[in-house]
Design a binder for these strands. Structure first.
Length: 218
DNA sequence: ATCCCGAGGG
DNA sequence: CCCTCTGGAT
């Protein structure tokens, strides 16, 4: 890990000492459900939904009894609710039948589950099972590319390059720091570069502020 | 009109 | 590579 990236992370750590997973959960399963629901939604909205949902449906045994109508009524306000609902209804019996009722702990098994891609898998691996991982969501993609920690055009390559650029022991922490920074200062629309504590280390601030293109799908 | 801790199908 | 799914906030 080079000096500049070390400095960036050190400053971000000072700025966001409470950086952590902000999806409320009390088990790996609840985190998996919350993360699936979080696609194209805000964690704030997801937490509102799961607060009520997990009150009645907390364990896998509980979720195995939920009806499509009840599930939909809970998650409707989140967006993308049909696919998310269908994926979850397929997911619960799969966990029971193929995974002994447990959330699997490997990338390969996780991404094989309906509605689970690399981003969701990495969130679960790092936050529920303490496996070093960098989940590249919209914030991590935008912030890491603006700062110049990586220069990539897809989330997959961004994850790959971030793992090379950063020491493994800081992967999960760096993921949270980049997300917090993306929420508080380095927002998509009007980033607060004037207030940014790492602007002197930032290629986006140094450059012409040429707008960062959205990630290409791959 | 744009963005939010994306994934799957064509 | 592309498109669609989706409501809510700004």
């Amino acid at each position: 890990m080079n000096k500049k990236n070390r400095e960036i992370l050190a400053i971000l750590e000072e700025t966001y000492p409470d950086a952590r997973c902000e999806l409320n959960h009390e088990s790996p399963l609840q985190l998996l459900v919350a993360t699936i629901l979080s696609a194209q939604s805000t964690d704030k909205k997801v937490n509102e939904v799961t607060a009520k949902l997990f009150q009645e449906y907390a364990t896998l045994e509980d979720f195995l009894t939920i009806t499509p109508e009840i599930l939909e009524s809970h998650i409707k306000v989140i967006g993308l609710y049909k696919t998310k609902g269908q994926n979850l209804l397929k997911l619960f019996p799969l966990l029971k039948e193929r995974h002994h009722g447990e959330v699997p702990r490997t990338m390969e098994e996780l991404v094989a589950l309906p509605g689970v891609g690399r981003k969701t898998a990495n969130v679960v691996l790092s936050n529920a099972f303490d496996v070093p991982a960098i989940a590249v969501d919209t914030h991590v993609f935008r912030v890491s590319n603006r700062l110049g920690i990586v220069k990539e055009t897809t989330v997959e390559k961004t994850e790959e390059s971030l793992m090379k650029a950063l020491d493994k022991k800081v992967w999960t922490k760096a993921h949270h720091l980049l997300i917090f920074h993306g929420r508080r200062l380095c927002m998509a629309r009007a980033p607060k570069c004037g207030e940014c504590p790492v602007n002197e280390l930032c290629t986006y601030y140094a450059g012409e502020k040429k707008s960062l293109k959205k990630p290409k799908r791959s």
